[in-house]
Simulated scan of single mutants.
Amino acid sequence: MRDYLIRPAAPGDVDGARAVMLDTVYRDFGTGYVPRWHGDIIDPAAAYLAPARHTLLVAVDEATGEVVATAALDARGPAHPPNPRHLAERYPSGETAQLRRVYVRPGHRRRGLARRLVGELLAFAAADGGYRSVYLHTDPAVPGAEAFWRSLGKAVHDERQDPGGGQGIVHFEVPLV
């Protein structure tokens, strides 16, 4: 059984975190790096370490010292477009903690890392005191993603039910602890 240390990312973790994120968008999403969607991946320090109300967490395999999972939170609500207008209005920037980049390397999945990381993000959001809701969106084509988020929150909009299927994204709200 492996042991993992979950902690806020330090500057020395940025390269490992970026590698986990890039591997995920190429392998699991099949899109590769798309600047308008993934700009935070290239500079996670600016996106998550510098702003006071943002955070990037990493899970480190204690045996190897390798970053094997990431999870981030920022104060930006969903933008319209590309997201539906009613979601941008319901989850405004500044009041919404948006969960992002909850990614686990394949060899480390099914060990509770994503759930532990999300728990830490929710505690961070609650301690901030300024967030009134927690929002995220996921691509249901990624194996296990939709079921995982349904186990933690409620779907507030499923674009697959929109005329034309929208972007096929499912939007969630997770209770603030």
Rank of each mutant, 00 (worst) to 15 (best):
H54K: 04
L56D: 01
G39Y: 13
E89R: 13
P51E: 05
A46H: 09
H108I: 10
V142Q: 07
Q98E: 14
R53E: 15
T70C: 09
L121T: 00
S93K: 03
P84A: 08
V118A: 06
A50S: 11
Y135D: 06
G112I: 12
P51M: 05
R109P: 03
P51F: 04
P84T: 06
G130C: 02
V67C: 11
L136R: 01
T55C: 12
A145N: 10
R116I: 05
Q98C: 14
A71Y: 00
L117R: 01
A71N: 03
L87D: 07
P92G: 10
V102M: 11
P106C: 13
L56A: 01
L99C: 07
E62R: 15
I41Q: 05
E89L: 14
A97T: 00
L56F: 02
A79C: 10
F124S: 10
H54E: 08
L121V: 01
R90H: 08
A52G: 10
N83D: 15
V102A: 13
Y91D: 02
V58E: 02
A69D: 11
R109G: 02
L117Q: 04
V68C: 04
V102Q: 04
D40T: 06
Y103A: 11
P106T: 14
E62I: 12
G39M: 10
R105W: 00
